[in-house]
Nucleic acid binder design. Structure first.
Lengths: 222, 222
DNA sequence: CGCTCGGTTGACAACCGTCAAAGCGTGTGG
DNA sequence: CCACACGCTTTGACGGTTGTCAACCGAGCG
């Protein structure tokens, strides 16, 4: 089942126009359950999307069967506009009740032709995605497992954007983290306990942590 | 010395308007020597750029001293438009005589406001960069050294876009490839000899190769 | 001629992936 | 209410791959 069928059906509802919204009037919102597909690889690109609540993963499954997560999508993130005719990756909700806005692609493009301000907004959004992907390459480029996990935790702390010292929520499982960092689950788990034992972070439950020593976290190179 | 000083000085010359050019009239071309800086990390973003000839590397130097190459820039590639106020990475020419066109940033944005066609072109160019970066993430996500190097060779073969069976030129050194793939130089060298011994590729000199068995190259997973 | 730089090959140790097992929390069914 | 099963996480043991250190080769150049 294609994602597009989600929009315009009973699950969808017209979003109210809010100031600061890119395309409030066109947006249609859909809600997804944990693990549910938002769109599939090689499906036609009929919408642009924005995460409103929850979390999602963009990924592909290699020929060898390994799942590679290309990036995590958190509230405020736009996605789906890079692909031309078909999507290059699949996107799935990570949490129950993940909310995603969809914008019909053709109408957005048409609108942008007549509205320079909108055009700039779109360029700004795509630029933000490029910056995110470049940061991601730097994380993947790290050598040691502890360094990768540290960089990942810092990224999540920044993107969830709480006040410093606030607890950070990890919406995804260890498996997701492993497929994101190209590590095995076991190595991710070990790296987390290592960081905790060093007093760099404090795990509060399995999906929540607090940074105790930010400098040490940034300096973790192994 | 900032890159911007390159443009508008004696080294620069006004590019002729050619059909199909994005912004032929605004373009100013500069030539760089091997290893010369095109712009520095944290320098103000005054231009957008396009590689006309030669090759360049975009990179950053981590706190631990390791150089991470974010991507290689080949003829036809646009770059420098993702950063907002300052560049997040440095860019250096890899080859002597690398030619780069610069477009003044403010004037391009102003032009795009009035020209929907140009706006679409820019979105298309940024979308292409996103696709390139996502492909890059997949390469970095590979596990084995032979797999990474294989994927890299395939990427170079595609981007240089010769007819199948044609020899492919590698403009960059083994060190560049290593910093691109997050491997050591020695491992890159070993992976190349492994691929050659298996009859998958044929090295012709150190910076030139030919694909003998494309299927095997694509299937290299280790 | 001798230097440096880029590339290749070898030896060894460290790190990470794999296999295995056990703990833990949650939901379901008896 | 308890028993059980299942998914997720953690920890342990072991082997393979890769980074490090070292040596050598060849080309270009002063």
């Amino acid at each position: 089942m294609l994602a597009s069928s989600q929009f315009g059906t009973d699950q969808a509802s017209v979003a109210p126009r809010r100031p600061g919204d890119l395309l409030g009037g066109l947006a249609v919102t859909a809600r997804y359950a944990r693990g549910q597909e938002i769109y599939a690889q090689d499906s036609p690109t009929e919408h642009w999307y924005r995460v409103v609540g929850g979390a999602a993963r963009r990924f592909t499954v290699q020929t060898n069967g390994r799942r590679q997560i290309v990036d995590f999508l958190l509230p405020g993130d736009h996605f789906g506009f890079a692909s031309r005719a078909v999507h290059h990756f699949s996107v799935e909700a990570i949490l129950d009740g993940t909310l995603v806005e969809g914008y019909p692609r053709g109408r957005v493009e048409a609108l942008a032709d007549g509205d320079p301000h909108l055009g700039r907004d779109i360029r700004s959004v795509t630029a933000a995605e490029i910056v995110r992907l470049q940061a991601r390459i730097l994380i993947l480029g790290r050598i040691g497992s502890v360094g990768k996990v540290s960089a990942f935790l810092l990224e999540m702390a920044e993107r969830s954007a709480g006040r410093p010292g606030t607890a950070v929520i990890l919406p995804m499982s260890r498996y997701d983290i492993a497929d994101y960092l190209t590590l095995s689950v076991e190595t991710v788990s070990r790296a987390l306990t290592t960081l905790q034992q060093r007093g760099v972070i404090r795990l509060q439950g399995k999906r929540r942590f607090r940074i105790s020593d930010r400098d040490a976290l940034e300096d973790s190179d192994e």
